[in-house]
Design a protein around this nucleic acid. Structure first.
Lengths: 213, 213
DNA sequence: GTCTATATCTGGATAGAC
DNA sequence: GTCTATCCAGATATAGAC
């Protein structure tokens, strides 16, 4: 119980850090602004974290964990069409609910992944390779079009689903519609599922299956 | 002729600015670093531009112009499959040759498009709407699947093609392959064309047409 | 057009009272 | 755990000699 107040403050700090880092990136963000948002003194941040980098890395790691979760859906004994549509839906929903997390991750990667490169080449790569193997097994079973390159396909999947969060401002500026609108959001999901599934299932049923959503 | 030296320096400055802004974003970039790269004195930058923002906006506008060019391919009297595959190829090639430009644009959008929002809602939107209309006409002519949402489709097209530039570090870290490898790059292009075309042409010939590339 | 010097401010970070 | 005071490096920007 005595810890409760301190962990609550810690969370306030992490949230504020996410808010600021996800807009300005690591070097562009100021601890002053984070402190104000977190309703604490700037110098107080250093009680919780050694320095700016430590705070940034912690936020980034929390985000990363959540970001990878949906990939768990990829299991050999499931049907590709089911898995893929579920994955796309989950990923787009997540992008909407946690667009700041998505943006923070994108910023880090675009800027050369300076603080995440080892993780990327380590545990994330392992995770990635396991899921690539699932796609390959699907192909051997004739469940997935053999023309698909599993590696490229997964990355394409990421790009499209993430873009709804990362480029939401562009989306709204150009179409005049917001993804926060439930109807339009559903249409975007359905569209993406149909587009991606039609090109990857070995059977012809992909498009019709996508329409059941 | 007297201007030549000055415009050359100006270009040096713009290139250096692109280099730095595309890594750190607007607020994260330092004029000191730009000046060093451009081989001039920091204070000299202010001879060419009023302030940091003016320099940034100029770089951004130059990038934007190039970024929009490929969309010119969309013309009603052409065949969708041809146009789309040409577009994808052109866009990915451009992303590779000018990945810094692509990244700068992505950073600006992700960060909320603070310096480009009016252009986005103005001329870019107009441009975008014209091309949406082309897709709609193709649909009326039965040349393009009617299930496609033109607005979402164009944006999907952007996301995927841009991702090859913006997330190149991730790509390399996970697959171990570099997009600078000619063979692999070609495969990525072909894959993307096939994936996107299969879901959008009204006829069945989409996939086979894509394989001619 | 380019350099030096400088003004001014904000950045991250530390020391120490409470 | 939190606040005040402060250090110092680095930031943008200006003035003026050359």
């Amino acid at each position: 119980m005595e810890l409760k107040k301190s962990t609550q403050k810690r969370n306030q700090l992490l949230n504020a850090a996410l808010d600021v880092f996800s807009v300005y990136g690591f070097s562009g963000a100021s601890l002053d602004e984070i402190a104000q948002l977190a309703q604490m003194h700037k110098s107080n941040i250093f009680y919780y974290y050694e320095n700016k980098e430590a705070l940034y890395v912690e936020v980034l790691m929390l985000v990363l964990q959540k970001w990878l979760e949906p990939l768990q859906l990829f299991e050999v004994d499931r049907e590709p069409a089911d898995v893929l549509s579920e994955y796309i839906i989950q990923k787009i929903e997540y992008s909407k609910a946690h667009s700041k997390a998505s943006k923070l991750f994108a910023l880090e990667i675009i800027q050369g992944a300076p603080y995440i490169h080892t993780v990327l080449k380590g545990s994330i790569k392992k995770h990635f390779k396991r899921k690539v193997k699932v796609l390959q097994q699907w192909q051997e079973q004739g469940k997935l079009a053999k023309e698909i390159d599993p590696e490229i396909f997964i990355i394409n999947l990421w790009s499209i689903t993430q873009s709804y969060a990362d480029f939401d401002i562009q989306f709204e500026a150009l179409t005049g519609k917001t993804l926060r609108n439930r109807n339009f959001h559903q249409r975007a999901i359905q569209h993406t599922v149909a587009l991606l599934l039609s090109g990857c299932t070995a059977e012809k049923s992909a498009l019709s299956e996508a329409e059941n959503l």
